[in-house]
């Protein structure tokens, strides 16, 4: 299995230097999108997408509005299954067990893959209960493990110091940026295999955005992160790999620094230099 993985990796990641100056060991594969199609009813939103997601790295997806980047992201935790009329073709294989998540139970997929949404969406409950929510869903209700893992998740989301004295207060009393970090803590608490972020800073001010970006660059040491962003600078700052999408197709995918400094495709070049999009 390991050898097979390395082979898969070698095809694309072989000539890639250690990203972001890390002394990176051999990069492993966490997930691979193979020839993925997606339809909203009769409208095809994804067309034969292939994408490899490296383990414990930040993978960014950029592209103009309507290019399918959010649609692709929401395939990873089967959010589309909540609404009637949507259908998939192709595979998203999860590693190391090499299973197609399109054929898994959507509930099981979501138990393993966490998500943070565009708009902060805390529950109308206390700060503590927000972070504990995912743990309770997984049957963890005893006080001690809850306390520990809530604190751990809040520290992981760089929110602990700001909220440790008001854990029982309502989450709606937090600022927008704090709410979004709370949502990140909520997603992190159950220790997901992959964390999906759908334009997590688009509703936030620059200072709150900087805090979340800072947090994300630290996060990827422990969790695989896939982030959709309309902000190219953000992708350049925080991601190891970047995918550029256009009209439901993946146009270019590679190490972030390379993609932004020496794009292989003309379309990518046009987009990142601001000529369209």
């Amino acid at each position: 299995m390991q050898r097979q993985l390395n082979t898969l990796m070698n095809e694309q990641f072989d000539d890639i230097p250690a990203p972001l100056g890390e002394a990176s060991p051999a990069t492993e594969l966490r997930a691979e999108v193979r020839n993925l199609d997606f339809w909203y009813g009769d409208t095809q939103a994804l067309k034969g997408v292939n994408l490899r997601v490296a383990d414990r790295k930040v993978t960014a997806m950029i592209g103009p509005s309507g290019c399918g980047k959010s649609t692709l992201l929401r395939c990873f935790n089967r959010m589309h299954d909540l609404y009637p009329g949507n259908s998939y073709g192709g595979e998203i294989r999860l590693f190391p067990e090499d299973r197609n998540l399109i054929e898994m139970d959507p509930g099981l997929v979501r138990l393993r893959i966490g998500m943070v949404f565009q708009k902060p969406n805390p529950f109308p409950k206390s700060i503590f209960e927000n972070v504990a929510a995912g743990l309770r869903v997984r049957g963890i209700n005893a006080k001690k493990p809850l306390d520990e893992r809530v604190e751990q998740a809040l520290q992981g989301a760089a929110l602990w110091d700001e909220v440790k004295d008001r854990l029982q207060e309502s989450a709606y009393g937090l600022s927008g940026g704090q709410q979004q970090r709370l949502c990140i803590a909520r997603a992190l608490a159950p220790q997901p295999d992959i964390l999906l972020l759908d334009e997590p800073t688009s509703a936030l001010d620059p200072i709150a955005t900087a805090k979340i970006e800072d947090l994300l660059t630290k996060l990827h040491k422990s969790v695989t992160v896939i982030i959709v962003t309309h902000n190219m600078q953000q992708a350049a700052r925080i991601s190891n790999y970047t995918a550029y999408m256009h009209m439901g197709k993946l146009v270019e995918y590679g190490v972030t620094d390379d993609l932004f400094t020496a794009p292989r495709e003309q379309m990518t070049s046009d987009y990142i230099t601001g000529r369209f999009g």
């Binding site: 979501r110 969406n121 529950f123 309770r136 997984r138």
Partner: peptide
Amino acid sequence: DLREAAYGLGADKWQTVRLYVLPA
């Protein structure tokens, strides 16, 4: 939003309804 947040955490339908939709 609220439903997606709950489903996104892996909650099933009944958990989503009982813990989040109904109280709200």
